[in-house]
Amino acid sequence: MSETVIEVGDRHIREINEEIQEACKTGKPIRVVDTLSRHNLGVGLPDGADITFEGSVGYYCGGLNTGSSLKIERNSGWALGEGMAKGHITVGGRAGMSCGAAMIGGTIHVKGDTGPRCGVAMKGGNIVVEGKIGYQSGFMAHAGKIIALGGAGDSCADALWEGEVWVAGEVDSLGVDVNVIEPTAEEVAEVDAILEPLGLVDPSRNWRKMVSGQRLWYFEARDASAWLMI
């Protein structure tokens, strides 16, 4: 099946996104070229679309995704897949700050590292990072899993709700109110089920699973000094 090629260049972003939406209706794969790290590319894509971005993209790429499969061949900027509900996003390189922010479903797969606050306030879905997740990743995640295969930066899993941060490798430092627990075999099997379709299962991994210590859930102003990190 042939593909539809859409060129970005210096054109107005609305014009480009309208062309992408039209192309989605044909059912053919879409290839977006000359992306120039532009922002807001492919926001609000429909279920079933298959789209590849050749080169790096800017902020909010794949945001509000409702079921499409996106591939970014190089790096992405801030808030990749912000608020996505369903679908699959693959990044060949690095993802910038707040990747998967407030997402409610679907999977984001980053082959490189991510910037800070990966999965900030996420409410569902999974983020799989082959490299290292940045500073304060998982900040206030309500639900869903962040799975990092190459370690984590400072203040990892800070102030979680019911989200989980799984790390194989070094964790530079923990955030506030984190419990690090030894996962059960059943829990590891659940994570492996997420990694399996990506070809990333490795039974030798030494997992650290981070969940909320639940003390911050009942925050009292008089205890504020106990939580101040900076």
């Binding site: 532009r38 790096s56 800017g58 790096n75 900027g77 690095r94 910038g96 940045g134 500073y135 400072d154």
Partner: peptide, 22 residues
């Protein structure tokens, strides 16, 4: 501030350094 601005000067694919830690 933004990588997309740098691409106005460097039209080819580039690997910028993101200074995004604290």
């Amino acid at each position: 501030t933004e990588e997309q601005a740098m691409r106005r000067v460097f039209r080819n694919e580039i690997d910028v350094v993101n200074y995004d830690g604290p």
